[in-house]
C-alpha cells in the first residue's frame, strides 16, 4: 500500500491562483464590452493584441529562462487586459506590443515572475508608454467611426473630460457615468466598472478597504480643497441649493472622469503590490487618494491615478512593516480576570 504523506492540513479551499485571475477577467468584461461598444472594432483589436502579446511574452520569457510555464495561471492575460483598458483606442499597434513587452518582460519576469513584481505591470507599462510616446497616448478620440464600428460617429479629436472641467463642451454627468466620453478603452464606462467591482467583492476576490479608502479620501479632498469647495464658496455662501449642487457636481465629475474608478477597483487592489493587513490597505488607499488629488489639481500631467498607484506600490513593503499588528493576546489588559 502506497500512502501519500504530506503536512497538515489535508483539506484545502477550492480557490486557486488561476480561479482568482479568472474572476478578475470576468469582472473586467463589462468594462471591456462597454469600451468596444463606444470605440468600435479597433478597440477589439487593441484589446486582443494586448492580451495575446502579454501571454506570448510570458511564454517566451519563461522558455528562455528555463522556468516552468506559467501562462495557465492567467496572470499574463489579466495584465494584458488591464493594459488594454489603459490605452487610447487610436494607439498604433506596435506601441501596444512594446507596452506588453515592458509590462511582462521588464516589470514582471525580470523580477522573478508572478508574485515578485514590485509595481503593477499594467500601470508601469502605461506610464512607460506615456513618457515614451506622449502624443499617441494622450490624443483622445471620441468614438472612432471605423467602417464596421458598432456605433458610427465621426472621429473627433477631443480632450479628456479632466482637461475641460468647467468649459462649455464638457459632457454631462450621466454621459460620464455610462461612458459617453473620450478616454482610454476601459476607463470610460463607470457603470460597467462598478458592476465588475461588485462581482469581485461578492466573490471575495478583493476586499473593500483599498477602493473605499482611495475614493473616500479623494472625494473628501475635492470637497474641501477643490475648485468649488466647502471652505470658499464661489457663489458667496452655502445657503443656496445651487452652491451645494455645484459642490457635489465637481466631486462627482472628478470621480467619474479619468481612470480613478478603474484604478481604485482593479489596479490599486492588485494583490502583489498592495499591503497585507486591513490597516495597511486603508493607509495605501489613503495615500493613493491624496496623491491623486495633488497630481490632478496641482500637477501638470493628467496621470494622477497611474502615478499615485505606482508610488504607493513602491511604498508597500514599508507600509507592511509599519502596520504589522501584534499577535493575538499581546495586550496589557490581561491582568484583570
Amino acid at each position: 500500500m502506497k500512502l501519500q504523506v504530506s503536512h497538515s492540513p489535508h483539506v484545502r479551499d477550492k480557490a486557486t491562483t488561476s480561479s482568482i485571475m479568472r474572476d478578475v477577467i470576468i469582472a473586467l468584461l463589462p468594462a471591456t464590452f462597454a469600451g468596444w461598444y463606444y470605440f468600435g472594432v479597433r478597440a477589439v483589436f487593441v484589446t486582443l493584441l494586448s492580451i495575446v502579446s502579454c501571454i506570448g511574452f510570458e511564454y517566451i520569457c519563461r522558455k528562455i529562462m528555463k522556468r516552468n510555464n506559467t501562462i495557465t495561471d492567467l496572470s499574463a492575460a489579466v495584465t494584458g487586459l488591464l493594459l488594454a483598458m489603459n490605452l487610447p483606442v487610436t494607439i498604433p499597434f506596435y506601441m501596444v506590443i512594446i507596452g506588453a513587452c515592458f509590462a511582462i518582460v521588464v516589470v514582471k519576469q525580470m523580477f522573478g515572475g508572478i508574485g515578485n513584481n514590485f509595481v503593477n505591470p499594467a500601470i508601469a507599462a502605461r506610464i512607460f508608454l506615456v513618457i515614451a510616446f506622449p502624443k499617441a497616448m494622450t490624443s483622445w478620440t471620441l468614438h472612432t467611426g471605423s467602417w464596421f464600428s458598432m456605433k458610427s460617429v465621426d472621429a473627433v479629436s477631443s480632450a479628456t473630460p479632466l482637461t475641460m472641467v468647467g468649459t462649455k463642451e464638457a459632457p454631462s454627468l450621466w454621459d460620464l457615468f455610462i461612458g459617453n466620453k473620450a478616454g482610454c478603452i476601459g476607463e470610460v464606462c463607470i457603470l460597467a466598472l462598478l458592476i465588475g467591482g461588485l462581482y469581485l467583492l461578492i466573490r471575495h476576490v478583493i476586499r473593500p478597504w483599498i477602493p473605499a479608502a482611495y475614493i473616500g479620501t479623494f472625494l473628501i479632498l475635492v470637497l474641501l480643497f477643490g475648485h468649488t469647495n466647502l471652505l470658499h464658496a464661489p457663489s458667496g455662501d452655502y445657503t443656496t441649493l445651487q452652491a451645494w449642487t455645484d459642490l457635489f457636481y465637481e466631486a462627482c465629475y472628478m470621480l467619474c472622469s479619468g481612470g480613478l474608478v478603474l484604478g481604485a477597483i482593479f489596479m490599486a487592489t492588485d494583490y502583489v503590490t498592495s499591503p497585507l493587513t486591513v490597516k495597511g490597505k486603508l493607509l495605501f488607499g489613503f495615500g493613493c487618494g491624496v496623491l491623486t488629488f495633488l497630481i490632478r489639481y496641482y500637477g501638470n500631467m493628467a496621470e494622477g491615478v497611474s502615478f499615485s498607484i505606482i508610488l504607493m506600490n513602491i511604498l508597500t513593503p514599508h507600509i507592511d512593516d509599519w502596520t504589522m499588528g501584534k499577535p493575538f493576546g499581546e495586550v496589557k489588559e490581561n491582568a484583570k480576570a
Binding site: S75, Y271, K326, F328
Partner: peptide, 26 residues
Amino acid sequence: TLPPESPCIRCARCVASCPMDLIPCG
C-alpha cells in the same frame, strides 16, 4: 489531493484567516 505549490501572490487570505493575527506569508 496534493496540488502543486505556486508562488505567493500576496492575496492576504492567510493574513485574514489567521486566528492569532500573524502574517503567515511573511
